[in-house]
């Protein structure tokens, strides 16, 4: 799909969300819906205008702005910019990082924060071609940060990973006991 079509699809989706939001607000009493109507109606109108513009092929033209980019003031600076990426490579890298962002979230959901972050960090760094020493160092640092600073230090409640919950296992006593061992000398 061309970028224009994608842009139209995005604006169209926003317009549909806004139309649904207004329809939903029609069922509420006045106090709850006043803001939705007062702001929602003009917003829906603006989105409709934008959508019409994009469909009719009249996107706002680029307006030259003084000092908008360094290259306008100093041509030599343009040379210092990184070379533009091949679009296919850019798409591949974008898909890869989006996959990793979702992967980190999935790992946290499945095995909990402490193990999930550690595991995902290890896999990410290894897949990026880092040396084992670097991978191990950063993974340990990240794990130590989560457990020592956030779990033991700040007492953030980390929910159990779904895999552990489903299998009836629990990691909370393990981390609680570890934190107790670590922090007890400081508590005197």
């Amino acid at each position: 799909m061309s970028s224009r079509r994608l842009s139209i699809a995005f604006t169209g989706a926003l317009f549909l969300v806004m139309a649904w939001a207004l329809w939903e607000a029609s069922a509420w009493e006045l106090q709850a819906s006043l803001m939705a109507w007062l702001i929602g109606l003009p917003t829906a109108a603006l989105l409709a205008v934008q959508l019409a513009r994009e469909i009719l092929g009249r996107p706002e033209r680029a307006v030259p702005v003084e000092g908008d980019e360094p290259g306008l003031l100093d041509p030599s600076l343009a040379e210092q910019e990184a070379e533009p990426l091949d679009p296919a490579e850019e798409r591949r890298r974008t898909a890869r990082i989006i996959g990793w962002i979702l992967g980190f979230a999935a790992a946290i959901w499945l095995v909990g924060f402490q193990f999930g972050i550690g595991l995902a960090t290890l896999l990410y760094l290894k897949s990026a071609g880092e040396r084992w020493l670097t991978v191990a160092g950063i993974t340990v640092a990240v794990l130590a940060g989560v457990v020592l600073v956030f779990d033991c230090g700040m007492h953030i409640f980390f929910a159990e990973g779904k895999l552990f919950a489903w299998s009836g296992l629990t990691t909370t006593p393990l981390f609680n006991s570890f934190c107790y061992q670590v922090t007890s000398p400081f508590k005197g």
Partner: peptide, 11 residues
């Protein structure tokens, strides 16, 4: 090397 710590902070 920055991405894992950044994702940690994000989540």
């Amino acid at each position: 090397l920055l991405i894992p710590p950044l994702l940690l902070f994000i989540y």
